[in-house]
Simulated assay, not measured.
Amino acid sequence: MTTLENHHLRVSIRPKGAELTSIFHKSTGIEHLWQADPSVWGWHAPNLFPVVGGCLNNQLLVDGKTYPIERHGFARQSTFETTESTATHAVFSLRSSESTRIHFPYEFEFQIIYELNGPALTITYRVVNEDEKTVFFSVGAHPAFAVPFKPDEAYEDYFIEFEQAEALETHMLSSVGYFNGETKPVATEGSRLLLTKHLFDQDALVFKNLASRRVAIRTEKHAHSVTVDYPAFPYLGIWAKPGAPFVCVEPWLGCADSEGQQKPIEAKEAIQHVEPGHVFNASFTIAIA
């Protein structure tokens, strides 16, 4: 386990999946990350790579060949190497290997960089192309924040506040996790999406056309908040297991497949790419107040 700490925050990251396991706000004594109760949902903040969401037939189609791939990819189940570590900075690395090539036939290094700066944690995804061809991939985050913040509060006391007041429209998922082509308006109060126990009864809310690049988890009961800034991520998922005391705020560069015919990886919706010898970077920030 790697721990980063400054005057404001103490965060912990485990080697498996280079996954955040704790974001502890020192002045309030509040643990802001869901603590992965395995009877409810046994993750804290999985990192999604080289796919986001589910692929049709649980396969990737690359250069005319199919490769088995699980939902959200293999990075969250992989053990990362810690290549750099200071009091406030750490770099975790996953390199291509015989086991990754079974699922994803590219030579790469996938780095996840954590950096504490005041009351904020910046997470950077870096994909290094070590192949002789273009590497296509998706990448995303899935942090689960504990709600409510305090034991004497209720889940329904909280809301997601968007950077801008806008008409929210979620893209609907089938029972097996593929987009079905349907959309549905999501009710808001101005820029606020109210949290309720039944908000996620039909799976995640998936937003593909947001103007907002910042959301905050807030309550009217006090000024404490969690803000997620995601300037480089055009897609956003918001999800919780119905009735569970957390909410996931998920910046994505990629998404699940749509029902229908399987597409080659380069034609997948929201697919990213990096050329030989080049490096891809995308960052988001979690700030605690």
Rank of each mutant, 00 (worst) to 15 (best):
A287E: 15
V147L: 11
W41P: 01
F108D: 01
H32N: 14
Y235E: 15
S99C: 01
A232W: 03
R192G: 08
E189S: 12
A144V: 01
G118S: 12
P242K: 05
F149Y: 14
A232L: 05
F207Y: 13
E156Y: 13
T3I: 14
V91Q: 06
S27Y: 12
V247N: 07
V249H: 04
L4R: 09
Q35W: 15
I102E: 15
T227C: 09
G17T: 05
I102D: 14
C255L: 06
Y230N: 07
A216Q: 11
A45C: 09
D131A: 13
G53F: 07
T122Y: 13
I13D: 10
K197M: 11
L173Y: 03
T196P: 08
E19G: 05
K263T: 10
T170R: 11
V147T: 13
R71S: 11
R218D: 02
T219E: 10
L94N: 00
T134M: 01
C255Q: 13
G237D: 05
D257K: 00
K221H: 14
G17A: 04
P50K: 03
F136D: 00
P148T: 03
Y125P: 00
K26T: 03
A287G: 07
L4A: 10
E115L: 04
I288D: 01
I13V: 15
A223M: 06
E166W: 08
N117W: 07
R126H: 06
S174D: 11
F246D: 01
V226F: 05
A154Y: 12
S283E: 08
S39K: 14
I30E: 13
F74L: 10
M172Y: 05
E259K: 11
P105V: 05
D257R: 00
F284P: 00
K133N: 10
Y114S: 09
A90E: 02
D37Q: 08
S22N: 11
N6H: 07
T196A: 09
T88M: 11
